[in-house]
Design a protein around this nucleic acid. Structure first.
Length: 328
RNA sequence: GGAGGGAUGGGAGAGUGGUUAAAUCCACCAGACUGUAAAUCUGGCGCCCGGAAGGGCUACGUAGGUUCGAAUCCUACUCCCUCCA
C-alpha cells in the first residue's frame, strides 16, 4: 500500500472481473474503479447494442458519467458483432486506458470474450456470410445434418472431428471459414498478418503480475433468487416499453440483439402470443440456464481467483485487488 | 340429489394388459465450444450397488381383486372437474 504512483496504478495492469449473471460483477467493478482509479471495459456481447439498456443490465447514465465505460452502446441493434470484432476493439481500449495511467477493469458477462482476451485467442477472421449460411441451411433441410457434416469432413477433417454433426450452426461456420480460406488462399499472407494484430495473450501458463482475474460466485439457489428478483425489477423499470420501442423502430426477433434473453420473450408477449407472467417465467428460467453456462466456462479457467459475492467475500476481493495494484 | 369426465414421475402431459422406470416438453444437474456465445450442440435426471454393461428394490390417488403378467381390466373408497336438478 506504500509507494503508489500518484495515480495509484502501475502502468500495464489489467483487472478482469468474471462470474455468472446477477452475481454483482458490475457493482464490484465500479467499486474497484472508484477506489483504484479505473475505467470499465465491458466484455459483453449484448451491452454493445444501443437501446438495449434495461434488459442487459447496463450501467446507468449516472454511473457511466462517474466512471468511463467502454464497449457499451457501440453499434445499432441490427448490426453484427462477434468475438473477432470484440478482440479488435478491446486491445486498443485497454491500451488507451493504460496510457492514461488508469486501471482497465474488464467486466465480463460473455465468458468466451473474456477467455479470448486473457488467453490471447486468434479466431479466424472470416466475417459472416449470410448468403452462404442461408444456402447451407437449405442443404440441411434437404439432405440432413449428417450430409453437411460429411462435406465438412471432406473439406476440413480436423474441424469436422471437433464438431458434433448435429450442431449445424458450428458445422456451417466451419464450412464458411474453410471456403473463405480456399477462395482467398492468395491473400493468406495478409490474413496472417491480420491475425497477429489481435490481442496478445495475458495468460500463458501462469498469470503474471500485470493481470488479475477475479471470479465472483454465489450458491446456486441464492443466485437464482437474485436473478428472479432482478428480472422482476427490470419489468418494473419499464423493460416492456423499451422492447416495444425497439419493435416500433423495426427491430425484429430475427436479429441477434432481439433474440437476447428477455427481448425475445417480451417481443412475443407484445405480439399477443404469450402471457406476461409466462414470459417473465421463461426469462427467469433462461437466465438460470445462462448462468449455468457461464459456470461451465469459468470453472475451467485456471487463471481465476474465486471469491464469494457476499459481504466478507467482496471485502477480501477488494483487498486482493489493492494488494495487486500496489505491486510495481 | 342425478349424469358423465378425471386422478401418471418436481411441473405440464402421453401411454390404455407384457418390448414401460413409463414418450415429449419444461425445470434441474453436468459437459462441448476460437466471428451469432444471452447463441448452438451433447449427456444425465425414482432409490441402491457398478466406471460401464448390468443387477436389485419401490412406483402411475387409496384399498382390494382378475391375470402367468396391470399405470392399463373389475370392485369399493377418497378427492377434483363439467353438465342436469
Amino acid at each position: 500500500m506504500t509507494n503508489l504512483p500518484s495515480d495509484g496504478v502501475t502502468p500495464g495492469k489489467m483487472l478482469v472481473v468474471a462470474g455468472p449473471t446477477a452475481v454483482g460483477k458490475s457493482s464490484f467493478g465500479l467499486e474497484v474503479a472508484r477506489r483504484f482509479g479505473g475505467e470499465i471495459v465491458s466484455a459483453d456481447s449484448r451491452q454493445v447494442f444501443t437501446g438495449l439498456d434495461i434488459g442487459t443490465a447496463k450501467a446507468s447514465i449516472a454511473e457511466q458519467r462517474a466512471i468511463p465505460h467502454h464497449l457499451v452502446d457501440i453499434i445499432e441493434p441490427d448490426e453484427d458483432f462477434g468475438l473477432a470484432p470484440f478482440l479488435d476493439l478491446v486491445g486498443d481500449v485497454v491500451a488507451g486506458i493504460q496510457s492514461r495511467n488508469k486501471l482497465p477493469v474488464v467486466v465480463g458477462g460473455s465468458s468466451q470474450y473474456v477467455f479470448a482476451l486473457i488467453e490471447g485467442w486468434s479466431p479466424p477472421r472470416v466475417p459472416p456470410n449470410a448468403e452462404l449460411r442461408a444456402a447451407l441451411e437449405l442443404r440441411v433441410q434437404a439432405d440432413g445434418p449428417d450430409a453437411l457434416h460429411a462435406e465438412l469432413a471432406a473439406a476440413d477433417p480436423e474441424a469436422a472431428a471437433k464438431i458434433d454433426p448435429r450442431n449445424v450452426r458450428r458445422v456451417i461456420r466451419a464450412l464458411e471459414v474453410r471456403q473463405s480460406e480456399v477462395s482467398q488462399s492468395e491473400k493468406r499472407q495478409a490474413a496472417t498478418t491480420e491475425r497477429e494484430a489481435t490481442v496478445a495473450p495475458r495468460y500463458t501458463g501462469a498469470l503474471n503480475k500485470d493481470t488479475l482475474a477475479i471470479g465472483l460466485t454465489l450458491p446456486r439457489k441464492l443466485l437464482y433468487e437474485r436473478i428472479d428478483q432482478r428480472v422482476d425489477q427490470m419489468i418494473e423499470a419499464g423493460w416492456l416499453n423499451e422492447v416495444e420501442g425497439l419493435s416500433q423502430r423495426g427491430y425484429g426477433p430475427e436479429l441477434t440483439a432481439m433474440s437476447s434473453i428477455g427481448y425475445q420473450e417480451l417481443t412475443e408477449h407484445l405480439s399477443g402470443n404469450l402471457d406476461l407472467a409466462d414470459a417473465v417465467q421463461r426469462i427467469k428460467n433462461r437466465t438460470h440456464k445462462f448462468a449455468r453456462g457461464q459456470y461451465v466456462w469459468l470453472r475451467r479457467a485456471k487463471w481465476l481467483e474465486w471469491f464469494e459475492a457476499d459481504e466478507p467475500g467482496l471485502a477480501s476481493a477488494i483487498d486482493r485487488v489493492g494488494e495487486w495494484v500496489a505491486i510495481p
